[in-house]
Simulated assay, not measured.
Amino acid sequence: MTGKPKLYYFDGRGKMESIRWLLAAAGIEFEEEFLETREQYEKLLQDGALLFQQVPMVEINGMKMVQTRAILSYIAAKYNLYGKDLKERALIDMYVEGTTDLMGMIMQLPFQPPEAQEKNLALIIERAATRYFPVYEKVLKDHGQEFLVGSRFSWADVHLFEAILMAEECKPDILSSFPQLQAFKGRISNIPTVKKFLQPGSQRKPPADDKLIAKVKKIFNI
């Protein structure tokens, strides 16, 4: 396949949203094919397109890529968002893994039973404030640069920015005691490609609502 990358997923955030974010931050336009029915998903399975019978799946440069981490690593490397050497790449990987852990907790919240959501929301806020954001606050302070790794914008910055926005949906003032992260958020939000993706009408997805959750459960039999 040549031309724009094509993303296969449901019309919502899930694991695909970080892929959308990274492509957008790199300034790469992409197309999407939304899974609306169980039959569409089964067709992808029957065609052998889903190596491990899972989405996300991205068609890019003649490949049908699956596994979120592999897709993100490829995009980051291809578009020079993966550091200048192995040391920087290792740091980027560590920071991305941390934000992925936090984002995974937030991502799962709408799919949990109502009686569990309040408890787990409190846990997310506690973990963000005491385990994850203090790390990035210290990294930015000690590093003394505009970005997390080296002196240029990377995948780690995109991922942390997305995580901040997700955490703020859980608690709007969650950055109140993190001045470095507040400044970081302001800087990243003004990068032209990021600023464009934040605008209404972009391919950025809203938080999952009840209608989307019901559709996803039907498509994947969960």
Rank of each mutant, 00 (worst) to 15 (best):
F184M: 09
V135D: 03
M105V: 05
P110V: 13
L165K: 14
S177V: 13
F111A: 12
S177Q: 15
E137G: 08
K185D: 01
V158Q: 12
E168C: 09
E115R: 14
F111L: 14
I125F: 07
E137R: 13
H143I: 00
E88K: 03
I92N: 06
F161T: 10
K87P: 00
S154Y: 03
S154F: 02
L198R: 12
P114Y: 09
W155S: 09
N190G: 04
K196N: 10
K84Q: 07
K119R: 13
K84A: 09
P114A: 15
A156H: 09
A116H: 13
E88P: 01
A90R: 08
Y132M: 04
F178S: 10
L198V: 05
P110L: 15
E168W: 08
F153L: 02
F184R: 12
Q112W: 09
W155R: 11
G201Y: 08
L121C: 12
L160E: 10
E97P: 00
Y136D: 03
I124Q: 12
P114M: 13
F178P: 04
F147M: 01
I188T: 05
L140T: 07
D85Y: 03
R152G: 00
D101F: 06
M107Y: 08
M107F: 07
I188K: 07
R89H: 00
Y136P: 01
G144Q: 03
L140K: 12
S176H: 14
F178M: 07
F111R: 13
A116S: 15
R152F: 01
A128K: 11
R152V: 00
Y132N: 04
A129E: 12
I164N: 03
G98E: 02
S154R: 08
R187E: 02
S151Q: 09
P113N: 15
A122H: 15
E97H: 05
S189L: 03
L91A: 07
I92Q: 03
Q108F: 11
F197G: 04
I124D: 05
K185A: 08
D93W: 04
D173P: 03
T193H: 10
